[in-house]
């Protein structure tokens, strides 16, 4: 495991500049809400549908142009398959129960630069296909696919999230106050000079500089008190994004380019820190208090029962 330097290098860049910069490049995967369907009692197949969003989180615009786009799916056993994206829809029927990771890639040449837009997200599938998933269910699985995943071989450039550092008790998800570390890979190697842009639904933006080992980490900021007070278990979206320019020339679909610009986004969501509504000190105090009361009770109960002469004539040594 890599050691993180906890010095966070957060540089908040002035809002206006940032927003305009983001607006051009941001593109991310999002799961579209399932329509409650079913005509005539027939069960709907377990299809997951996804859309591509563009712009800022606040704008949340749908993108319908899937020209030159590829979607890869990596399952819990690291098997990779390619998805069909024809018809303006990204649809996928997961077979197994568990975590899958989706990778979206779209290439286009603009002004002599090849833009490779990438986005990746993790989805959890609850309903598997019983006839094909039997063996997997029998075996069961402990390890999760949330973090620390190896970069996908099919993509030259990738932003990968590592295991977050947290002070509370919930293992699975992200919460405010957690330290979220990221690493950037180019052709399988860690890049130590790429910065990370973070933007949140509530409007908080930041650019993160890497540490000596190339790890980009930041503490997820707390949302305003006003919102957390109202709803303690709310969640918020955020996008982290990194871009990387390569001096490379070539021809893509008949168009020549003299540089490549990779941009990868990870759509994430986080909740309000459990530490906001739980107390560890009180937890310890309760446990220790119970221990004290219980052991004192036992001690006095035993003392009451013990008769004096035995102490004189028995000796535990």
């Amino acid at each position: 495991m890599r050691m993180f330097t906890f010095k966070l290098k957060i540089a908040v860049i002035s809002m206006c500049m940032c927003v305009s910069l983001f607006a051009q490049d941001s593109l991310w995967l999002d799961e579209s809400k399932k329509k409650s369907c079913c005509s005539g009692g027939e069960k709907a197949p377990n299809i997951k549908e996804f859309v591509i969003k563009k712009g800022t989180l606040q704008e949340n615009k749908k993108e319908h142009d899937f020209k030159n786009a590829v979607v890869y799916v990596r399952d819990m056993d690291h098997a990779v398959s390619e998805l069909n994206v024809t018809g303006g829809k990204i649809a996928f029927t997961p077979i197994h129960k568990g975590g899958y990771r989706l990778y979206f890639e779209q290439k286009s040449v603009q002004e002599g630069v090849l833009h490779v837009n990438l986005s990746s997200m993790r989805i959890h599938n609850k309903e598997g296909n019983i006839s094909q998933t039997l063996l997997k269910e029998v075996r069961g699985k402990t390890n999760d696919s949330h973090y620390d995943q190896k970069p996908l071989a099919q993509l030259p450039f990738e932003l990968v999230m590592e295991r977050p550092i947290r002070k509370h008790h919930i293992n699975c998800c992200l919460y405010s106050g957690d330290i979220a570390p990221f690493t950037v890979y180019y052709k399988g190697k860690v890049q130590k000079d790429v910065s990370l842009r973070v933007s949140m639904e509530s409007g908080w933006n930041a650019t993160i500089q890497p540490d000596d080992e190339g790890v980009l980490s930041f503490e997820i900021p707390r949302s305003t008190y006003a919102t957390t007070e109202k709803e303690k278990k709310r969640s918020e979206k955020m996008i982290v994004e990194a871009s990387y320019d390569v001096n490379e020339s070539g021809v893509y679909k008949g168009e020549a380019y003299h540089g490549v610009r990779y941009v990868m986004s990870l759509p994430l969501s986080f909740g309000a820190s459990p530490l906001e509504y739980e107390s560890q000190v009180l937890g310890f105090a309760t446990a220790i208090g119970v221990m004290l009361v219980f052991s004192l009770g036992l001690y006095y109960n035993r003392r009451r029962k013990r008769k004096t002469p035995k102490e004189i004539y028995f000796d535990e040594e």
């Binding site: 002469p309 035995k310 004539y313 028995f314 000796d315 535990e316 040594e317």
Partner: peptide
């Protein structure tokens, strides 16, 4: 048995010990 042990240890003037 405990009170037997106490009486005997009194009689013997010796403590019953673990060893």
């Amino acid at each position: 048995v405990k009170s037997f042990a106490v009486k005997l240890s009194k009689f013997q003037g010796k403590k019953l010990t673990r060893s």
